[in-house]
Write a protein that binds this DNA or RNA. Sequence first.
DNA 1: GCCAACGTTGGC
DNA 2: GCCAACGTTGGC
Length: 163
Amino acid sequence: MNDTTKHWLVKTEPEAFSIGDLVRAKNKTTSWTGVRNYQARNYMRDEMQLGDPVLFYHSNAEPSAIVGLARVVKESQPDPTSWDEHDSHYDPKSTPLNPRWFMVDLQWEETFARPLTLAMLREIPALAHMELLRKGSRLSVMPVSKGEFAAVLKFAAKLAGSK
DNA sequence: GCCAACGTTGGC
DNA sequence: GCCAACGTTGGC
């Protein structure tokens, strides 16, 4: 990790794929398939680099929270679920020769001792402008500033050390 | 190219 | 389950 390293956050509904599922995956690694939003796709396809750290967020959860940390272990490749007719994210406009959707591979790095709930995150001044906390924010893959990333890790460590 | 209708996301 | 916010689609 150097000064140009980018930091990220991915959202997932734990009922669909949780951080526990990532821990249990082969090599604790998974392909981040199923993203069907152009802006999120562009971040994965164009900007996520090998080694970039990624905050792992559970949405529609009880409670919704940042639950851990992962890392980009493979840069973008076409998402094969996009041309799989039997996949719930099938897109007839995407083909192997002309793929429309992309994915990166993420490897588990850490599960926080205690989840950083939305309510907690909203109380951290350094995160006041975080994309995740913006009203109406729906991006499932988003950049996190270096300062925000550091603040999240610092808070995670503080929470882990408290009762 | 506008924009209304519709589908989805996700906090609550 | 509700519904606000947002992205996408398609008629014109």
